[in-house]
Design a protein around this nucleic acid. Structure first.
Lengths: 242, 242
DNA sequence: TTGCTCCTCACGTCACGTGAGGTGGC
DNA sequence: TTGCTCCTCACGTCACGTGAGGTGGC
């Protein structure tokens, strides 16, 4: 073993794959993609990798473990300074993903904590809706306000809405004129609760309105409001300004 | 708009896609995969989605946002309690990914902080190697020990090794007999440093040895040790036991 | 001669994106 | 009649996994 003069040791693909903890197919694929070709072949076409090839292989494997795509790895290996550029992009993408995952995790935990699975699906749908209509800043603002309210405050708000909706629905079913003082009082309360939700932020108000316009009251309120009731409330509010 | 009796409103695929923030192709795909088929078609084959279909669509979209695959969504919607099971699996997978990402992020930051890109690639390769040969527990143990050493301790250890390797290489080049007392002293020091690294843990010692056997001294030491020098040290150590 | 390793296609995966070529509907 | 919407193929993506069918090598 001592004086073994194997100046350029060569590796066959299977050997090398086993060594590096990869599959033969992976090495084939890297070759197809132009990342790593063996510097020699035997007469019968067997791939022979040199020490130099092996070093390149380990570099590629390392970069792959950093999450780079094969295209990015090529870029990193070809250009000087390419590594830094590619890794910076990679880090940014990773940060975005980690943020996303953190939010997702919270969501999943909430889903698991919830016992009623219909209710929990509704929660997810609501969040999805929010994501579509509120800007990230607006969402942060809404979250801030929710935090300020605390769990009891949130429940209180929900009860307030449930009560108000029930009262409004009762008037509508009774056929009360929207201009009636009782209904007008409810409409005023309605505006107050919306004001409390938007916190007076005109952007949030606009987003909310766009959501109701585009999705309709049933979707936007996740079933809390019927189209008929929304219509009735709108009539009462237009009455108020007369 | 008021008394509109559209008992079963129908949606065409484009409309619905726009509403839901999806593409038409996505709805086609969901249909191919058996997730959501419109309950009606026009004579010409136009898809018509009912309110019921729309509700199902929103449920699917919500679950997709939770990161479920289309297959998992089917499972969740078909079986009772399927949602909980699927979400639990999802959460476990997410936790694993988040842990992985956290480690990856550290790595990427270290790569960016390093100025010599060859050096940084070596670091990544070393970590890859460690992942292959040390169990998670052993890695934790090694990390604990590194932390205990602190940055100065680490640098000191690296200097110790560099010195010892240089001294050993000098003897080898000079052709000193491995049994020579000077070489024997170096070999003793060598064993001490390995002992310091493994912390006396036999598992770590075995993993380290397996790594050197399977990868060879050059790869395992990331170029710090030549095959010849490793051979020389081995001879010196076997001499010691005589 | 028998295994073992290797070779080159080539299809499958996952959730759609992106045309191509053609037809119904207000 | 002119756009617009819709239809059904069908290939492409990304990094390989997984055979299929056949041949070299110690």
């Amino acid at each position: 073993v001592a004086g073994d003069m194997d100046e350029t040791r060569h590796w066959r693909v299977g050997e090398l794959a086993r060594q590096a903890g990869l599959t033969v197919r992976t090495l084939h694929h890297w070759e197809e993609r132009g990342l790593l070709a063996p510097s020699e072949r035997t007469g019968a076409g067997y791939r022979l990798y040199s020490d130099e090839d092996v070093r390149r292989l380990y570099r590629i494997a390392a970069l792959r473990d950093l999450g780079l795509s094969l295209g990015e790895i090529r870029e990193a290996l070809e250009r000087d300074g390419g590594l830094r550029a590619v890794v910076e992009r990679q880090l940014e993408a990773l940060d975005r993903r980690m943020e996303h995952d953190a939010r997702l995790r919270e969501l999943l935990v909430r889903v698991l904590e919830s016992h009623d699975s219909a209710d929990l699906l509704a929660t997810v749908e609501m969040i999805r809706m929010s994501d579509r209509y509120y800007t990230p800043e607006q969402q942060a603002e809404l979250a801030r306000r929710r935090e300020q309210l605390g769990p009891e405050g949130m429940e209180q708000a929900q009860r307030d809405w449930a009560e108000l909706i029930a009262a409004m629905e009762a008037e509508r079913e009774a056929g009360t004129d929207p201009a009636d003082p009782r209904v007008q009082e409810l409409a005023r309360r309605w505006s107050e609760l919306i004001e409390a939700f938007t916190g007076g932020d005109p952007g949030i108000r606009a987003s909310l309105q766009r959501m109701y316009e585009e999705q309709g009251p049933e979707q936007a309120s996740r079933g809390a409001l019927s189209a008929e009731l929304a219509e009735y409330v709108a009539r009462a509010q237009s009455q108020a300004s007369r």
